[in-house]
């Protein structure tokens, strides 16, 4: 591990009451990132948001609201990148099949993945070890 690297590995029950805890951890870490050239408060808010959206996706859709399952969140920050992985044990879905919101027809749902894609530099969702992983990265230096 590099001396500036930060790694957080946490598992919480598959319940929405833990959204604020995980979101806040991500936000607090991002606020301390003096290696980031841009607006750190904005980055922190966005990290809170994408963590929240990714966890909701895991809790409600992938893990089908089963409170006995767990959501596993991994955050790794190097000098260059901030990487977030959210693991679930559910059926999974094809991230590329989710259309962007139809701005002319008002729907209650369907903005979560769109928000993640808008705020992060790379987003992928794939099967891993019998479950699934949503991985997203944000460049801290390379594309600021």
């Amino acid at each position: 591990m590099d001396k500036n690297e930060i790694e957080v590995d946490i598992k919480v029950p598959n319940q929405t009451r833990y959204l604020s805890l995980i979101g806040r951890i991500g936000e607090d870490i991002a606020k301390e990132l003096d290696r980031f050239d841009g607006d750190r408060d904005l980055l922190a808010y966005h990290i809170n948001l994408v963590l929240t959206e990714a966890m909701v996706n895991a809790i409600k859709h992938a893990n089908a609201n089963d409170p006995d399952k767990m959501v596993h969140v991994y955050i790794n920050i190097t000098d260059q990148d901030l990487l977030i992985r959210v693991f679930d044990d559910g059926q999974g879905f094809n991230i590329n099949s989710i259309p962007p919101p139809d701005f002319d027809h008002l729907e209650d749902r369907g903005r979560g993945i769109f928000i993640i894609k808008q705020l992060m530099d790379t987003v992928r969702y794939e099967k891993i070890n019998g479950g699934n992983m949503l991985e997203m990265t944000k460049c801290l230096r390379c594309c600021a």
Partner: peptide, 16 residues
């Protein structure tokens, strides 16, 4: 201070 897509969705539901 913080709103996510579900919060926005609740307001959209109210609007409709």
């Amino acid at each position: 201070r913080f709103i996510d897509s579900s919060g926005l969705g609740a307001l959209v539901s109210g609007f409709k």
